[in-house]
Computed example of a mutant assay.
Amino acid sequence: MIELINVSKSYGGLVKAVDNLNLTVSPGEIIGFLGPNGAGKTTTLKMVTGILKPDQGVIRINDIDIQKDPLKAKMQFGFVPDSPDMFLRLKGLEYLNFMADIYQVSQEDRKERIGSLTERFELKHVLLDQLQSYSHGMRQKIILMGALLHNPSVWILDEPLTGLDPRSSFILKEMMKEHAQRGNTVFFSTHVLEVAEKLCDRVAVINKGKLVFHGTLEEMRAHFSAHESLEHMFLEMTEHE
């Protein structure tokens, strides 16, 4: 579960990147976080994960305040950032073991999970190669695997499908569905509206730092009093704000 209560963040004390945001992502839900470039999506995700500190407000992960108990809160989630270009001198297996060490995954569990994930994402053949030799999509997959190794109940993903080939994209979407069906939480940002339309239980739309909609697609359609596409509704919500 993720809770944001009256969360705000400014840069330079002038423009609010996130303005008094209230949002809850409940167990068993997949929530898509939508908005134009510069709307505040990545800033929000970085505050939720503790990378950035909010100017005001409270953020809880599974009822744990990330500012009061950051280490315990960070053990609750797996985070995939918007860029996979990190730790490039490490080999794939070294990176996965590094992540397993951070999250205190036992040798027995990590062996089983690394085997399962590398088979699912078809990366077993490159685990002994350096990450800098990987394509963008392969780096995205290894970062995903590292985030999921400790089997967190909360997944926080920033544009996770970017760079993935169609098969890997399908696999990740199936994994997100399976994770939510087990009573867990998935919160991800995306620019791909069709993905949100097919995958999400609810969507949250942010524009200029403000939450302009949060609910189901049916509720959004009722708000616009027509059975319009998500793309049309999204454009209408963010055009005039």
Rank of each mutant, 00 (worst) to 15 (best):
D65L: 09
I59D: 05
V192L: 14
E159L: 09
P166M: 11
E119H: 14
A100D: 12
Q140W: 03
G28I: 07
R113S: 08
L161G: 04
F87I: 00
V105C: 08
L131F: 03
H227N: 14
L199Y: 12
R110K: 13
I2T: 07
R167G: 00
N6P: 01
K210H: 12
S26K: 15
H179E: 09
F121T: 12
A204C: 15
E194M: 02
P166E: 11
E236H: 15
G163A: 10
A39S: 15
L21D: 02
E241F: 13
H240R: 15
G40L: 04
E231C: 05
E231S: 14
T49Q: 08
T42P: 01
V18K: 07
D63T: 01
D101R: 13
H179K: 14
L117R: 04
W155I: 08
S135E: 11
H150D: 10
H223F: 13
G137R: 01
L93P: 01
H240D: 15
T43F: 05
L148A: 12
M145C: 14
L131W: 05
A17T: 11
G183Q: 12
L161V: 14
M86D: 00
G32W: 05
K53I: 06
E197I: 00
T238R: 13
R113W: 08
P36C: 10
I143S: 11
R221N: 11
E218A: 14
G163C: 09
P27H: 09
H179L: 04
D109L: 03
P152M: 10
A226M: 07
I2K: 08
D85S: 04
E94A: 00
T118D: 05
E122Y: 02
T24P: 01
K124M: 04
N22E: 06
F234D: 08
V186W: 02
A222E: 15
V126N: 07
R139N: 08
S189Y: 09
G57D: 05
D129F: 04
T49E: 05
L235C: 06
M1N: 07
L161M: 15
D85E: 15
D65M: 09
T118V: 15
F234R: 05
I66C: 02
S133Y: 11
C200P: 10
K173D: 00
A222Y: 06
R89H: 13
F170S: 10
D85W: 05
T162W: 06
N207M: 01
G35C: 08
D129V: 00
E239V: 06
I51G: 01
L52N: 13
A180E: 06
L172N: 08
Y11G: 07
E228Y: 09
G12P: 10
E174Q: 15
P54G: 02
Q140F: 04
E3W: 03
N6Q: 09
V195C: 00
E218W: 03
I31D: 03
A100N: 08
N37P: 07
E3F: 01
T118F: 02
M75F: 01
M233P: 12
L117D: 04
A180T: 05
R182C: 02
Y11W: 14
D82T: 02
L157E: 07
S106V: 04
I171V: 15
G38R: 11
S169R: 15
G78N: 04
H227L: 00
D82V: 00
